[in-house]
Nucleic acid binder design. Structure first.
Lengths: 281, 281
DNA sequence: ACTACAGATGTAATAAATTTACATTTTCTA
DNA sequence: TAGAAAATGTAAATTTATTACATCTGTAGT
């Protein structure tokens, strides 16, 4: 979280002297990062320990740590603040905003992801007798994408975006099957029900969805990207990208787990496509 | 200017000990910014002044100044060097690398995108009598995703991932139709041929693919994400994400062009989904 | 208005970190 | 292999940050 914003937000919580420090920093943050604690104290007309206390109040370890945070806030001019597309935005503006908000979203997702869960998911997938990917609506394309990736691994994999097919598949599932549900909301009724069916047939259920949702509760393992809701205005955008990257991570974990010999297999699939393509000049 | 890149570029100009320092920093830059010069020196198995000299060689004032620069390089997900997943990577490591390389890729894409083309594409799409999205393999899921987005706009939209259906659709296409081809390589023979068919039937052909490829040559308009090839090792990863974000941009441009009244429409679609979901607690 | 107390601020000492000056080692060249 | 130049390390000096404690300020209760 941007420390400059934080200073502004907490401005009222500071004491008189601390506020003096805050003002000097806000007025010239670029100079502040190059100042020593003594210089800054003099500029704000306070003592050095006051500056130090100011830093601690912002949950930093001390002055040098604070400068590090400040430097990051100042990197790249204005980082991705202006996330929301505005009606009056030019094509240039909304293009940049969407790219930046997507990147910001991935950054958040990366930080919130639980690596142990990733690792367990890879465990489960590598040992699966068969993998099924299910998704509806916007999540259907994520499921298709997952199929496309895992299919290359020469593992039995199916993908459905149709409730009826999903149900049939779940009813026939067995011990050793892994079913992956993609759901942005985690609240789609039919998916929750299907997860129950799959589990009662001994299949392992992985949910790529939000934590603490009805769907999450039915899963053996949940991977959450934990993306701020407000990024997706009227349709899932950034959150779906985060899910896709998660699929990339799982696929990568899968190939690494399988080792070298296996990667030849991937190359074979890739090479097999050559015949359907024009030569590269 | 990114100091991590700079370290990599100048790697050959460093002396033996300096290179040791460089390697430690590249291996764990996030930790380096919190280390003191003594800690770092010990990790690199060199003396403290060597670290200092290393910093100066990179045109910084000294170690603290160097850390500031480094912190800025790492700020807000600004992607960094070690993009390639390595066989010995821990789950933590490959997860981070994939997220970061994806973000790096989006950053590149954003910079290389031609806004005028975006704008023209939005023009064409808003005026379309019908929109078709075509993609094969990994691009099929991008096409599906596009369908999912544009379908909400209450515009006639179809999507095919099947050569035969595509062909039928192209043969029946007309003046006023817009056909969007997704192709990572731009070299898939059947798609190139279909683009020709569509054009000869007066449809407008938009290609979301690489510039200067056989497919690009058959298009009325090409949107290229221009993603470095080496990011996609054995399967399309980052490049496909860039295409999806491009779809987001086009969809956003579309809604903006249609104005306020239209956004109610989107809300209606979103609300219509509520009945199939569990209430939010 | 005075006292007692809590919070805020400053002073000075201490500790930590960085830099400098110089000594030693290594590497290259003749 | 001697000698110079470059690289690296050691230890002292300097700068910088932190801690402990003293002082001040404002406030609530009497």
């Amino acid at each position: 979280m941007n420390i400059l914003d934080k200073i502004n937000t907490q401005l009222s919580e500071f004491s008189k002297s601390e506020r003096k420090v805050a003002e000097v920093i806000i007025a010239a943050p670029h100079e502040a990062i190059h100042a020593s604690i003594a210089t800054l104290a003099k500029q704000a007309d306070v003592s050095e320990p006051t500056v130090n206390r100011f830093c601690r109040r912002l949950d930093t370890k001390g002055y040098p740590d604070f400068k590090l945070h400040l430097a990051q806030s100042l990197a790249n001019g204005t980082p991705y603040v202006n996330r929301h597309v505005d009606e009056s935005d030019s094509p240039q503006a909304y293009t940049e905003k969407i790219f930046e908000s997507t990147m910001a979203c991935l950054d958040t997702a990366r930080q919130s992801i639980d690596v142990n869960s990733i690792n367990r998911a890879v465990d489960l997938l590598t040992q699966a007798r068969q993998i099924s990917f299910f998704g509806l609506g916007a999540s259907a394309s994520v499921a298709h994408d997952a199929q496309n990736k895992f299919f290359r691994f020469n593992v039995p994999v199916v993908c459905f975006d149709d409730i009826v097919m999903m149900r049939m598949s779940c009813i026939n599932s067995n011990d050793g099957d892994v079913v992956v549900f993609f759901s942005h909301t985690g609240r789609t009724k039919s998916l929750v029900e299907l997860a129950q069916v799959a589990r009662s047939n001994e299949a392992i259920v992985i949910g790529i969805t939000e934590l603490d949702t009805p769907l999450a509760k039915e899963c053996n393992l949940v991977l959450s990207s934990n993306v701020p809701e407000d990024t997706d205005m009227y349709m899932p955008m950034a959150s779906r990208i985060a899910q896709l990257v998660l699929v990339d991570v799982l696929a990568t974990g899968f190939t690494l787990r399988r080792g070298n010999k296996f990667r030849d297999n991937l190359k074979k699939v890739k090479d097999s496509l050559k015949i359907s393509r024009f030569e590269k000049k």
